[in-house]
């Protein structure tokens, strides 16, 4: 059954059909939330909130964009709001930004010479480096990189979700990658 048909039935009072949309899109929403929160439980809670919000806003869904695009927008906004509202996350982000700026410069130090990336991966500390580096990116760069890397979306769809042009998304992604690797290098040297 097509999304539009399911939505029509839900709006006519068959709310149980919403379970079909949840089943179809839960992974997509969860992945987006993970990209921002990096925590399974928090992401699951937020995924639920996103679907509740979508259900309540369904009468306002005009169908101009795909349902998934609309859902991505809700998920991105909910994730950004969650981060903004959490003082701990803000403090952490500010600290990371400060540390990142202070250490910005050339990237000269390899992570660990001769060490297999697989070994590096399993270290929690290194995972946290990446998460911190991602969290310290400006919101629009972070959104672009989450939609690109976590959701594997093409630039065209990212542009639609972020209500911008494909060119702007490309530039955002380039800056995001550059910043990400700079911040990773900076953290490596703290």
């Amino acid at each position: 059954m097509a999304d539009a048909e399911i939505i029509k039935l839900i709006l006519q009072g068959d709310k149980e059909k919403f379970a079909l949309l949840v089943g179809q899109y839960q992974k997509l929403v969860f992945r987006t939330c993970m990209g921002f929160l990096h925590d399974k439980d928090d992401s699951e809670d937020l995924t639920q909130d996103v679907f509740i919000q979508a259900y309540q806003s369904l009468p306002r869904f005009r169908g101009n964009a795909a349902f998934s695009t609309w859902l991505y927008r809700i998920a991105v906004n909910a994730s950004l709001n969650k981060i903004r509202k959490s003082p701990m996350m803000l403090i952490k982000q500010q600290f990371d930004n400060f540390a990142g700026d202070k250490k910005e410069g050339e990237l000269s130090v390899p992570l660990t010479d001769g060490e297999d990336p697989e070994t590096i991966m399993i270290r929690d500390e290194h995972v946290k480096w990446v998460q911190r580096a991602l969290d310290s990116l400006p919101e629009n760069q972070r959104t672009a990189i989450v939609l690109s890397k976590y959701d594997d979306l093409p630039q065209k769809e990212i542009a639609e979700i972020m209500d911008t042009t494909e060119g702007a998304v490309e530039a955002l992604l380039q800056r995001a990658k550059k910043n990400l690797y700079k911040k990773l290098a900076a953290q490596r040297r703290i």
Partner: peptide, 25 residues
């Protein structure tokens, strides 16, 4: 060494993202 470092960081970032992507609700 600079490019090797960046390349390794890219691999690290990609793998962390991949491991988070593999988590299921």
């Amino acid at each position: 060494n600079t490019c090797t470092g960046i390349y390794r960081q890219q691999i690290l970032a990609e793998r962390v993202i991949k491991s988070e992507k593999e988590l299921q609700p």
